[in-house]
Design a protein around this nucleic acid. Structure first.
Length: 558
RNA sequence: UGCCCUAUGGUGUAAUGGUAGCACAUCAGAUUCUGGUUCUGCUUGUCUGGGUUCGAAUCCUAGUGGGGCAACCA
């Protein structure tokens, strides 16, 4: 038997594996994916999802979905629904669905306990003053004048914060820790604030005082029994605070252990929900699912598959180094996946008529072509062929350099894909000098699949029979931004949008069989790229989105 | 004048004290009824200085560079 090469694990998998082997927490593995329902999931979340669900699956544990919904001003059920849809589409299954709002009462009770223990107080200063007193990373903060309020007063005011008697912003509950801590999060962090004018998407107006994320997240993990609390690097400095809160009330040794990995950055895009929301709200893209967006729903509409996304994620790895991934790696992943998945068809973007002068005027024949040379099980299909075809205007050149091996008058023979070998004889122009027809002659003995068809030629030309041609709309997508890292620029990121990120081609010619294709069906338009049917596509008005182009070495050199 | 994290080809990522490997990108050649795919090959890397060791990308130390931390956001 061959020795199986063990695929190297990332550092978090190694930690979990060791914990399981040592029987820590009974060898139990429980993770969670904790999004805030304030936006659509993007490919950075997919990285977290693959980690959270992947670790649970790999080590026989469970991964729950938890919505960290502690800020009703930003959250909405629209996002709760889309997040679930996207996780399912990616192919992951959660154990339970939880909400941080499920724990509002428990958190409230803990807050009261902290007050009674003299470890929390009500501050009536403004947000600005509190921020000033916080100091800076290099200078210590100063203590609030309200810091040493009597316990009973704190408790009474805290209850008023939740009764509607306190206006938004008038009071907050702060933990009494250390205003000179080198960790800014220990400088008396805010635990509760008042929000009266926004209903919570699940609890309505029941609560007026809402816990801050820092007071809810760690405890939520604790309440649920999370073993490995995996998140991104920006939460490293929060970890000691989560531990501190839990230490104030926990009466066992159990603790969720937090581990942090690098978040995903990709060139030529932005990966911040705030910026994406701006693009959507200002109409700079067509919505969260605009195929140029790095959202899961955008990638889906663009024609990406769950497998392509997951392969990409597993290739880029998890470390503690803040890296930026070249977008070409994402593109390579989807090309690889679509290669065996997508049937090949001819699509003519800029059509010109090709007339075969020695082909009988009224004849029409049916030819057979393979659906996918990289996937035999895809089978074959029939296409019609006759005297007049559409070909790509760029496949003909009147005065061609020797490196051009397509159609040119008196040039070499070329093959019409799955049909005959032809020789270009010339072209017809209108009074303005525009080429209206390209002419050629064909060799009847060179039909594909016959012995005569085995002749080697330098090039193969795509075509669509004019008798079965169908006009469709094609949307060519390119990178959303002109610069590698829009967030690093001095300029506002909106000024860096690529004006050519969407090109719409209306009169694209395909075989009319293609009009029946269903949304999210994948195709390779030969020599052009991979395409999928847009969700707005109808049999009357078919629309195709370009997922990714094919690599084109010839265009690159010219 | 702080605290935390971090540094391996162009971009990512492995090597867990013992031959620096893989992917993407790039370049060259072969194959091809897609100038795609596939195959082969080339070029390119351990941030710097000390130390430990028979042996250091790996451990220690000091620098340097990068990232994060000062929301009533998460």
């Amino acid at each position: 038997m061959e020795e199986e090469v063990k695929k190297s694990q990332n550092f978090i998998e190694e930690i979990v594996e060791k914990d399981v082997q040592e029987g820590k927490l009974g060898g139990r593995v429980q993770t969670r994916f904790p999004p805030e329902p304030n936006g659509y999931l993007h490919i950075g979340h997919a990285k977290a999802i693959c980690m959270d669900f992947g670790v649970a699956e790999k080590f026989g544990g469970v991964c729950n979905l938890r919505f960290d919904d502690t800020n009703p001003t930003k959250e909405d059920v629209e996002y709760v629904d889309s997040i679930q849809e996207d996780i399912c589409w990616l192919g992951f299954k959660w154990g339970n669905i939880y909400y941080a709002s499920d724990y509002f009462q428990q958190l409230w009770d803990l807050a009261e306990k902290l007050i009674l223990d003299g470890k929390a107080y009500i501050d009536e200063q403004s947000a600005e003053v509190i921020a000033q007193q916080k100091g800076t990373p290099t200078t210590p903060g100063v203590e609030s004048p309200f810091r040493n309020r009597p316990v009973e007063e704190n408790l009474a005011l805290f209850r008023k914060m939740n009764s509607g008697e306190v206006k938004d912003g008038a009071m907050v509950l702060r933990a009494k820790i250390d205003m000179s801590s080198p960790n800014m999060h220990f400088r008396d962090p805010i635990m509760y604030r008042v929000i009266t004018d926004h209903p919570h998407h699940r609890t309505g107006y029941k609560w007026k005082a809402y816990p801050m994320y820092d007071f809810a997240h760690g405890q939520s993990d604790y309440f649920e029994g999370v073993t490995h609390s995996i998140c991104t690097l920006e939460f490293v400095v929060h970890r000691p605070l989560y531990d501190w809160f839990i230490d104030q009330f926990a009466d066992t040794d159990y603790r969720p252990r937090q581990y942090e990995f690098n978040r995903l950055n990709i060139t030529y895009t932005v990966m911040s929900k705030r910026k994406m929301l701006q693009l959507v709200q200002e109409g700079l893209v067509a919505g969260w699912d605009d195929p140029r967006m790095p959202t899961i729903c955008g990638l889906r509409r663009r024609g990406y598959t769950p497998e392509a996304i997951k392969n990409f994620i597993s290739r880029i790895g998890y470390t503690k180094y803040e890296a930026t991934i070249d977008v070409s790696m994402l593109e390579a992943s989807v090309r690889e996946d679509l290669k065996t998945r997508a049937n090949r068809v001819c699509a003519i973007f800029e059509p010109v008529k090709l007339v075969i002068d020695n082909y009988p005027d009224d004849a029409q024949e049916t030819l057979t072509t393979e659906n996918n040379p990289d996937n035999e099980s895809a089978g074959t299909r029939d296409v019609t062929f006759s005297k007049e075809l559409y070909i790509e205007r760029g496949d003909f050149m009147e005065d061609a350099p020797s490196s051009f091996f397509r159609l040119t008058p008196g040039g070499r023979e070329v093959r019409l894909k799955s049909a005959y070998i032809v020789k270009c004889t010339g072209c017809v122009k209108d009074s303005d000098g525009n080429i209206t027809e390209v002419h050629c002659t064909y060799d009847p003995d060179t039909k594909s699949g016959t012995e005569g068809g085995n002749r080697k030629v330098k090039s193969t030309i795509n075509w669509v029979d004019t008798k079965s041609a169908r006009e469709v709309e094609v949307r060519l997508y390119d990178r959303l931004f002109m610069v590698e890292n829009p967030s690093a620029s001095e300029q506002d990121f909106r000024e860096l949008l690529n004006p050519d990120s969407l090109k719409v081609i209306k009169g694209c010619i395909v075989d009319n069989q293609l009009a029946e294709a269903k949304p999210l069906e994948h195709f390779q338009f030969l020599k052009q790229g991979y395409f999928t049917v847009d969700k707005d596509s109808t049999p009357d008005k078919p629309i195709f989105n370009r997922t990714v182009s094919l690599k084109d070495n010839w265009a690159k050199k010219n």
